[in-house]
Computed example of a mutant assay.
Amino acid sequence: MIGKRLKSARAASGLSLRALSNAMGHKVSAQAIGKYERNEDMPGSSVLIALARALAVSVDFLLSDDELELEGVEFRKLASSSAKEEAMIEAKALSCVEKYLAIESLLNLSSQDWDEPQGAPYWVNDPRDAEDAARNLRDAWLLGKDPIPMLSELLEEHGIKVFSLDVDRVDGLAAKVRRKGKHSARVIMIKKHTWSERKRFSLAHELGHIVLKVAPGCNSERAANRFAGAFLVPAEVLRQEIGTKRTDISLGELVSLKDRFGVSIQALTYRCKDLEIISQATFGRLFDIYRERGWRDAPFKEPNSLEWDVEEPGRFRRLCFRALSEGHIGLSRASELLEIPVRRLEEQLDYVT
Results as ranks from 00 to 15, higher is better:
Lys176Gln: 13
Lys4Glu: 10
Asp113Lys: 08
His209Arg: 06
Ser332Lys: 14
Ser58Ile: 06
Val167Tyr: 00
Arg10Asp: 02
Val255Gly: 06
Ala32Trp: 00
Gly243Met: 10
Ala102Pro: 03
Val352Trp: 12
Phe227Thr: 00
Lys180Arg: 13
Arg296Ser: 14
Leu319Gln: 10
Tyr122Ser: 03
Lys245Asp: 12
Pro216Arg: 12
Gln112Met: 11
Arg226Ser: 08
Ile148Tyr: 05
Ile289Ala: 11
Ile190Asp: 00
Leu212Pro: 02
Ile89Gly: 00
Ala267Val: 05
Ile242Gln: 02
Pro341His: 08
Glu67Pro: 07
Leu68Ser: 00
Ala185Ser: 13
Glu90Lys: 15
Asp288Met: 13
Cys218Glu: 08
Pro127Glu: 02
Ala298Pro: 14
Glu104Gly: 09
Val214His: 03
Leu349Met: 14
Arg317Ala: 12
Leu324Thr: 02
Arg318Phe: 10
Ser325Asp: 15
Ile49Ala: 13
Val47Asn: 06
Arg76Asn: 08
Glu241Ile: 04
Asn136Thr: 11
Met1Pro: 12
Thr244Pro: 01
Lys84Arg: 15
Leu349Ala: 08
Pro127Arg: 00
Gln31Thr: 15
Ile329Gln: 06
Lys245Asn: 12
Lys77Ser: 13
Ser152Trp: 00
Tyr122Lys: 05
Ser21Asn: 05
Asp129Arg: 07
Leu306Gln: 13
Ala9Asp: 05
Leu68Asn: 02
Glu69Met: 14
Ala9Trp: 01
Ser13Cys: 10
Gln266Ser: 15
Arg322Met: 10
Ser256Leu: 15
Ile148Ser: 02
Lys84Met: 09
Leu68Val: 03
Ser152Cys: 07
Ala281Phe: 09
Leu331Asp: 07
Leu20Lys: 04
Asp168Gln: 11
Arg293Ser: 10
Ala83Met: 11
Asp166Arg: 14
Ala281His: 15
Asn125Trp: 10
Lys99Thr: 01
Ser335Phe: 04
Val237Trp: 04
Leu70His: 06
Ala79Tyr: 07
Gly14Gln: 03
Leu20Arg: 06
Lys301His: 14
Met88Cys: 13
Gly34Thr: 04
Leu338His: 08
Asp126Asn: 14
Met42Ser: 15
Ile210Cys: 07
Val214Thr: 06
Lys191Tyr: 06
Gln280Lys: 14
Val47Gln: 03
Asp129Tyr: 09
Ala83Trp: 10
Ser164Lys: 01
Arg271Ile: 10
Val124Pro: 03
Thr353Val: 13
Gly25Trp: 05
Ser45Ala: 15
Gln348Gly: 06
Phe316Ser: 04
Arg128Asp: 15
Gln31Pro: 02
Asp65Tyr: 05
Leu232His: 05
Phe231Tyr: 08
Ala79Lys: 14
Gly208Asp: 04
Ile249Trp: 08
Leu207Ala: 03
Cys320Ser: 12
Asn219Ile: 15
Leu154His: 06
Phe321Ile: 09
Pro234Cys: 09
Arg5Cys: 06
Ile160Phe: 02
Ile249Pro: 01
Val255Asp: 13
Ser29Ile: 09
Leu51Lys: 06
Ala87Ser: 13
Pro127Val: 02
Leu70Phe: 07
Val214Ser: 01
Val211Gly: 03
Gly327Trp: 04
Leu109Val: 12
Ser202Tyr: 01
Gly294Trp: 09
Val162Ile: 14
Pro341Asn: 11
Ile2His: 04
Cys272Tyr: 02
Ala9Phe: 02
Glu85Thr: 14
Gly229Lys: 01
